[in-house]
Design a protein around this nucleic acid. Structure first.
Length: 112
DNA sequence: AAACTGACGGGCG
DNA sequence: ACGCCCGCCAGTT
C-alpha cells in the first residue's frame, strides 16, 4: 500500500489515535490527519469521527472525541454533544479555556 | 454528472 | 488577532 488508505482502515486509525489522547489534553483534526499520513485532509477526520460515532454508538464515551478541537482551540464539535457538554467534559479534566471559549492550546495540545 | 457541504488547515492581507 | 480564500476528499443533492 503506497498512500492509499482504504476507508475501513482509515476509520479504525482515527479511532485508535483518538482513543489514546491523554486525559486533560487535546489534539486537532489536522494533527491526526498528518499523523495518519493524509495531511491536508483534516476534514476527513471530523467526518470519520462522526461516522464512527453513529456506527459504534459512542454515546457512552468509549471514544474521547471531546478531546479533538480545531486548530484555534474552538469546540467545533460541540453540537454533537448537546449543549455545553463537550466543554464540561474538558473542564472536568482540568482543561483551561481562554475568555473566548477556546481551549488553551499552548497548555493542552497533544501531538499524536 | 456537476455543484455543494462540512467536527479543517495553511497562507495572506 | 482576525477574516477571507483556496485546497482537501467523501457523501449528498
Amino acid at each position: 500500500m503506497t498512500q492509499n488508505n482504504h476507508n475501513k482502515d482509515f476509520y479504525v486509525r482515527v479511532y485508535e489515535v483518538v482513543a489514546r489522547i491523554p486525559e486533560g489534553r487535546v489534539t486537532t483534526y489536522g494533527a491526526i490527519a498528518r499523523h495518519l499520513g493524509i495531511g491536508g485532509s483534516a476534514r476527513l477526520v471530523g467526518w470519520a469521527l462522526n461516522k464512527t460515532l453513529s456506527e459504534s454508538g459512542n454515546q457512552s464515551g468509549l471514544l474521547p472525541c471531546h478531546r479533538v478541537v480545531n486548530r484555534t482551540g474552538e469546540l467545533t464539535g460541540k453540537a454533537w454533544f448537546g449543549g455545553d457538554f463537550m466543554e464540561q467534559l474538558l473542564r472536568s479534566e482540568g482543561v483551561r479555556f481562554s475568555d473566548k471559549g477556546r481551549v488553551d492550546m499552548m497548555r493542552h495540545f497533544w501531538e499524536p
